[in-house]
Design a protein around this nucleic acid. Structure first.
Length: 948
RNA sequence: GCCCGGGUGGUGGAAUGGCAGACACGGAGGAUUCAAAAUCCUCUGCCCGAAAGGGCGUGCGGGUUCAAGUCCCGCCCCGGGCACCA
């Protein structure tokens, strides 16, 4: 290579990656040493310095709890963190005591899988990952109060997770008071006889075990033998919410099987109504509220009891949202697993049973057995695909319609599910398309009870209409002529009066399956005695620490394997001798662990008071940070995270918060008063002709716009950044090429915070150039000294500055960082055109406006401009409204809505003056050609439109 | 199927019913330089035109309005959520 030796004539003090890295390191160290980001608490360990901020309003800004992944961060991860940091820094400069902290949601499957593969304890791996993530985040210059950083895996943290579990375990939901209360109150009410036990046996006559079982059945955390989602590949059960519609695990996409198992559950359904109603109190994206509402799935209707013909002991209870259509019921359906199926099924087929109904079986019992087997084999996916092809068999039994005594054949069919309502329906084909489809397939009658519109040509009519064919005058029941709503009210009253049913509300929401067969999670603070009933460990025995495990050997588990909690292998730990008040006795520990959601249900409360050994959070501290002084619902002031947590995490956390609120441990009913969903950074990924992903960084864009990798054409797609698509770009790469401030600025500039956007490494240079230009406007690149003078700024630039401040202030407050940056850029571009040193009155506000976005950069300039102290609490620049307007404005003149020319008029010109000026302009005179305009619209300060 | 979002230059995106495309990337040209990088300046939606200027243009089709990316009606496409929920 005979290259000419290069002389590096880059000025010594140019803002480039090398200088940026130097500056960033310096300021990060200084911030840490000076505790710049410490947010003082009103009392307790972290109260130092509170006097200085006592008069300021508080602000609690929070990021969703990150999982410290082993592969480290890519540039998509910190988008939200940077956004909250910019906002939090801005709010500090507008005079708020801002709490912003970051912790780690560090329990979970990946660390345990890693342990299985390497034999290394999950804690070792987890702590290494946390350390790496801390390093990467620190390099971004995020203004977190590092004293408040916690990890769910810290014993000092999960001790309080266990404590909260005990609070929930020791509570029950009092429907009259509509809140959770201590179980002790319930026992007292049973003892005094104030509350009926509901078992038919008075408390005084119950045995000790009966009493415990009764109490346990009321607890908000309870053990239940129930159908659960067993995922052998993960070796654990999953919550319903963790299973996809295809019957696979959300994590890893492994097959999931239904099987009965003894498991912990949380009675979240008791809170269904409040979780729904209180959504009205919070400032959340509408889409998230809707998702939560759908998930809770409240629906109003009625329970109706149907006697079974010739079976006096059996009653089929159905839930319907359309009790007004009861006269249109022509058959009944039970879910295949419904417990009444055996009782309803007859020995032989009734006379005249159509062949279509029997499934070809000789007896109803055989038909039922065969159909049950068929449905058990059928996957959820298959069922969805042919949802309109209804299947089922007749049980041979009949139910009696309470409104008119009609005999209705009872079927089993898999379009009715055990998990919703009562697992049984009355089928009304005329007003329900699913029932219509089934009726058509099985040749069942259709009776319209709502008059469809004359031009209706469809099948089932589910809309409004007049009730018809619905009268039984002898029973005192006439619905004919009523609208749907009136008919519902009338029939519910009739059902209630005659003991055939009642109005009721049903929810889709199920109780929350709370135990997992994993090691790397919080142990339950629960032991069992000989009765097999759970006993809460007393608070003083917390924490219950995880035992050390040596055996990480993978177990091959299949569908039929007995789920086996790893803690069962810690035999020394599993059995324990304790004195729980009755002298030392042997107990068995609970071997399941809590799901990963547990820690994220309350971490935001621990940030408030992370070092407190006497309480999960001090109540004065909690009130200070979580109460809205203006009387709002309170809670975290701004919570930012991805929309993928719209249902699970946010619903669980709200539930725990409400329990804690009911028990008096927190001051408000909602944890997060304002929620903001950040978008995702997507990135281009490239597939070769075999469909294999190639390293995106090595793909070349050809002049014709196509892409090649090593000379071979590849195809571009967009997707999540990550290892699997081989398109990850790390923050470390960006620090090296441009510095962290450039990365921050670019991420904020790419587009609105709440939108997905594609990452483009080649565009980062633009943000870097902005910083270079600002630097050059304020610093002499040869000497590194400020190039700033105290001469007055030209009038035009001063006005421009004040317009910029006004716009940026508004944009920052609304988290529109991209447009704020555009305004700053525009102002700086004007500044660039100015000859000579930059006037101080322009330089200072510019630096302060940039400070939230690029904090190291701004601190460095601030310091070079002669300020000894950090600008962290420097007041944000204010603007003079008088400078926002100018004396004259240029406005467009339209003719018939099309811009034809522009005129300059005094800013305060009224309609007449504007019209006159417009009509006098040469261009308008020319175009009018002497004609009279039909009409002239003049909007002061805006435009003139001449209609001809 | 139902419920939410969203469709604007080559690209990311900007626009209280009032000049569509701010700002940036990319591209073109120029200044500077022995040369290059860097920097600075100019241009850059499409079409016609030498220019002046004109026409078209915010997914498609209608409508309201002096004026529509923005409001209304009907479609199409993309993304997300839910889904035989009685």
């Amino acid at each position: 290579m005979n290259r000419v030796p290069q002389v590096d004539d880059t000025p010594p003090h140019r803002y480039d990656a090398r200088l940026a890295n130097e500056i960033e390191k310096k300021w990060q160290d200084r911030w840490e040493a000076e505790g710049t980001f410490h947010a003082p608490n009103p009392v307790g360990d972290l109260a130092e310095g509170f006097d200085e901020v006592a008069d300021l309003p508080k602000l609690y800004v929070l990021d969703m709890f990150p999982y410290p992944s082993g592969s480290g961060l890519h540039v998509g991860h910190p988008l939200g963190f940077i956004g909250t940091d910019v906002y939090a820094r801005y709010m500090r400069m507008t005079g708020h005591n801002v709490l912003h902290a970051m912790g780690y949601d560090a329990f979970g499957l990946p660390a345990e899988e890693h342990a299985r593969q390497t034999g290394e304890h999950p804690r070792v791996n987890t702590e290494a990952n946390i350390a790496n993530m801390r390093r990467q985040l620190r390099a971004l210059g995020l203004a977190h109060d590092e004293r408040r950083s916690v990890a769910t895996t810290d014993v000092s943290f999960y001790r309080w997770t266990q404590w909260i579990f005990l609070q929930i375990f020791s509570s029950w939901y009092d429907p009259e008071a509509d809140r959770a209360r201590p179980v002790a109150d319930l026992i007292a009410e049973f003892e005094s006889g104030e509350r009926d036990t509901g078992t038919g046996t008075p408390w005084a006559e119950m045995s000790e075990i009966q009493r415990r079982e009764l109490i346990d059945s009321h607890r908000l955390a309870y053990v239940d033998e129930a159908e659960v989602n067993w995922c052998p590949a993960l070796g654990t059960v999953l919550a319903n919410e963790e299973v996809t519609a295809e019957g696979r695990s959300e994590r890893g996409n492994h097959p999931v099987f239904r099987r009965p198992l003894r498991q912990w559950k949380m009675r979240i359904t008791a809170y269904a109504d409040r979780l729904l109603a209180d959504l009205d109190l919070v400032d959340w994206p509408n889409s998230v509220k809707i998702m939560q509402r759908n998930w809770i799935g409240r629906s109003e209707g009625a329970r109706v009891f149907f006697d079974v013909a010739d079976r006096p002991d059996a009653t089929i209870e159905v839930f319907t949202t359309r009790p007004d259509t009861l006269f249109g019921a022509t058959y009944m359906v039970l879910a295949p697993e419904h417990p009444l199926v055996e009782q309803v099924t007859t020995e032989t087929w009734p006379e005249g049973t159509p062949d279509r109904w029997t499934g070809g079986a000789a007896t109803p019992a055989e038909a039922v057995a065969a159909y049950r087997e068929y449905t058990a084999r059928r996957s959820d996916l298959e069922r969805q695909v042919d949802a309109r092809d209804k299947t089922g068999v007749f049980t041979g039994g009949y139910a009696v319609n309470p409104v008119n005594g009609d005999r209705l054949p009872v079927f089993i069919a898999d379009y009715v599910m055990m998990g919703y309502g009562t697992g049984a329906i009355m089928a009304v084909p005329a007003q329900d398309q699913r029932d219509w489809d089934f009726a058509a397939a099985f040749d069942l009658p259709v009776i319209r009870t709502v008059q469809p519109p004359d031009d209706f040509e469809g099948e089932a009519w589910t809309g409004e209409g007049t009730t018809i064919n619905s009268a039984n005058p002898e029973a005192g029941l006439v619905l004919d002529g009523l609208g749907v709503e009136e008919a519902k009210t009338t029939i519910i009253a009739w059902l209630t009066e005659h003991g055939h049913g009642e109005g009721t509300v049903t929810y889709k929401l199920r109780d929350w399956l709370f135990s997992r067969q994993r090691y790397w999670g919080e142990p339950f603070p629960i032991v069992y005695d000989d009765t097999g009933l759970p006993i809460a460990l007393p608070e003083e025995m917390l924490p219950v620490e995880l035992p050390e495990l040596i055996d990480w050997a993978p177990r091959s588990l299949d569908e039929n394997a007995e789920p086996e909690p790893p803690l069962g292998r810690a035999t020394d730990w599993a059995e324990v001798e304790l004195d729980l008040g009755e002298g030392p006795r042997k107990y068995r520990r609970e071997l399941n662990t809590m799901p990963q959601w547990a820690g994220s249900c309350w971490y935001y409360l621990r940030y408030l008071d992370p070092t407190n050994d006497g309480a999960f959070v001090d109540s004065t501290v909690e009130r200070y940070w979580m109460t809205d002084p203006t009387g709002g619902v309170g809670g975290v002031d701004l919570y930012v995270g991805g929309v993928e947590h719209a249902v699970l995490h946010l619903l669980y956390a709200r539930f725990w918060h409400k329990v804690l609120y009911d028990l008096g441990h927190v001051s408000g009913p909602e944890p997060f008063s304002r929620l903001y969903n950040q978008g995702y950074i997507q990135a281009a990924a490239f597939q070769d002709s075999r469909g294999v992903y190639v390293p995106a960084a090595e793909v070349v864009e050809e002049p014709d716009g196509s892409f090649t990798y090593q000379g071979q054409p590849v195809e571009r797609i967009f997707g999540k950044m990550g290892k699997s698509l081989r398109n990850a770009v790390t923050p470390d790469e960006m620090y090296e090429s441009y510095g962290a401030d450039t990365l921050r600025l670019y991420e904020m500039f790419m587009g609105p915070m709440d939108q997905d956007r594609p990452w483009e490494t080649k565009s980062v240079i633009g943000s870097h150039r902005l910083l270079q230009r600002v630097w050059r406007n304020l610093i002499d690149e040869q000497t590194g000294q400020p190039n700033i003078s105290d001469v007055e700024a030209p009038e035009e630039l001063r006005r421009s500055l004040h317009r910029t401040i006004a716009g940026v202030t508004e944009d920052f407050a609304a988290m529109r960082f991209n447009t704020a940056i555009a305004k700053i850029t525009e102002f700086n571009n004007e500044l660039t055109r100015l000859e000579g040193p930059t006037p101080e009155e322009l330089a200072t506000p510019l630096v302060l406006m940039l400070a939230p976005l690029v904090p190291h950069f701004a601190e460095e300039l601030w310091s070079r401009m002669g300020h000894p102290r950090s600008l962290i609490r420097e007041p944000f620049p204010t603007f003079d409204p008088g400078l926002l307007t100018s004396d004259t404005v240029e406005i467009p003149v339209q003719m018939n809505g099309k811009v034809r020319t522009r005129i300059t008029v005094p800013a305060d010109a009224d309609r007449e003056a504007m019209t006159a000026a417009a009509l006098a302009s040469p261009r308008v005179v020319e175009l009018l050609g002497g004609a009279e305009p039909r009409k002239v619209i003049a909007v002061p300060g805006r435009l003139v439109n001449i209609v001809v």
